[in-house]
Design a protein around this nucleic acid. Sequence first.
RNA 1: GGAGCCUUAGCUCAAUUGGCUAGAGCGCCGCCCUGUCACGGCGGAGGUUGCGGGUUCGAGCCCCGUAGGCUCCGCCA
Length: 601
Amino acid sequence: MFRTHDCNALRKSDIGQQVTLAGWVNVTRDHGGVIFIDLRDREGLTQVVFRPEENAELAREAHTLRSEDVIQVSGRVAARLPGTENPNLASGDIEIIPSKLRILNRADTLPFPIDTEPQNEDLRMTHRYLDLRRPRLSRNLQVRHRVAKATRDYLDSQGFVEVETPILSKSTPEGARDFLVPSRIMPGKFYALPQAPQQYKQLLMVAGVEKYFQIARCFRDEDLRADRQPEFTQIDIEASFVTPDDIFAVTEGMLAAIFKAAFNVDIKTPFDRLTYREAVSRYGSDKPDRRFGMELVDLGEIFRESSFKVFRGVLDAGSVVKAINAKGFAGITIGQVDELTEIAKLHGAKGLAFIKIENGEWKSPIVKFFSDAEKAALKSKLQIEEGDCVFFGADKWEIACEVLGRLRLRIAEIQELHGRARPEPAPRGEGAPDWDFLWVTDFPLFEWSPEENKWNAMHHPFTRPKAEDMPLFDAKKFPDVRAEAYDVVLNGVEIGGGSMRIHEPQLQEKMFEVLGITAEDRQSQFGHLLHALRLGAPPHGGIALGLDRLVMLICGEQSIRDVMAFPKNNRGIDLMTQSPSEVDPRQLRDLSLKLAKDKKT
RNA sequence: GGAGCCUUAGCUCAAUUGGCUAGAGCGCCGCCCUGUCACGGCGGAGGUUGCGGGUUCGAGCCCCGUAGGCUCCGCCA
């Protein structure tokens, strides 16, 4: 037996016991005579004391110990000398007086210190196994496990069955770029790694599974971000004979179970709901962060008859004038104005108009165009006070909302209005950050793609239109057709989304038609699904939640890389294994593949 | 595909205006130290300033290029 206890197990009540511990040397404090070793395992720290007068040979050996050496010590649990207890350590009342020391493995000089927050992510990734030893990442992995287990337990309790679906699957033209896997047996043909188990889970509904879930790995060959990896994990859920309310209820129950398991906190259910239209109008985003105000206010009423030509012209053209009031932001610097203007232009605005309220004065080049009545109306509608700064967006609804929404988030960031990143999870229940859950519903069914000059499905091509919007669909008023689709948002981050699916073959055909998929392509790419819909497909719908993002938020991390064991960097490279890598020409020959051009040398 | 920031010792960072024999803390090595918990003290080793050009009497610093890292936009049904 390697050990009798872990390094966070021994307390006052164990004094006098003979124990054996094993772990890593966290730190050594060598006084020449007495030597202290903090022994660490994943559970915590225990202090080991070597005294030359008790065992000179052991002390001599202990003197050679360095950080991250792996050792085993056997000895007696002793009370610390009065006054030397360490209240910062769970095991701080006791220490081990060893009678035996085994050095299981010595460690080289470390590439980076693991007892401080390392800055160089490159280095951390190259030695990820070392990085993961750090208590924070070790904790993140454990939280992730708790979340996954709570998910399985809850969904099982609700009658959901976990079914695995293929990783080697079929490429489809819709959506993200596929990762491809060449077939050896079928030269020239390729599997695709699934972007999501979407079609499989619908086919499982046709198969009569009724309630399916899977903690599923998904793959998308797109450019990366802090919260995007080429492979990531979804909690994938699908059920038959359900309405959106059923999906909402099971999702809320599951998230409640997850937060109970991870934090022992009770989150408030049911979640609030906002329509897409409302979310974008009020927050300039389809995933609003509602933990602070600064809502978008429509000023159409005020400027409808204005003599200020810019606003009047925008309104006359059917566009909108909106504003946000950044409370206490009149002290904005020139650099910040430039940055915000840059953001506004980047998202389609021509410029950025704003008013600073300083020393009782409205400072802005546009104020002189406002009448007294307009100023009074602005003041009451935006609740303008001394020290505020008001930003305007005058443009088409989509652009004005988007621009002000982006400004709102950036200003909040500058003012640190939303909860700061926490280095440690909040203590159980207490002082926990606000967990603002929200459903956003009634997404548009289609979005226009100017590049492709065609309609695309906003969610995916299997999403059903809202029943009351079917007349609009039939009348080809595509921009106005709403989908039976929804997202679940947590603190301004989209953590999941889903929809009711099309179960009627005729409607699915119509949908493909609008999306510009030829009858031939429909058969070759979706023939199996269309056929299945003809053989007794029940009404069904579901949702998928991004497990990585959810765990990231729960752990208070800024990047999903910090909640994945072995993530890739922002070019999709695993720095530890150096993958992707070149392969032996024979492997290519087996696959009937030839590289288009020789690699650059 | 585009933009921004970054790259100096194993790690984290300094280095006034272009003047330098490139420093500090941690780590490492050696010596000392018997109650620390980021132990302490003394000494030492460790650098082609990412790489390649250029300007200059002189470049870590200025210019051009290039590689790598991070963040964002596009993209991600």
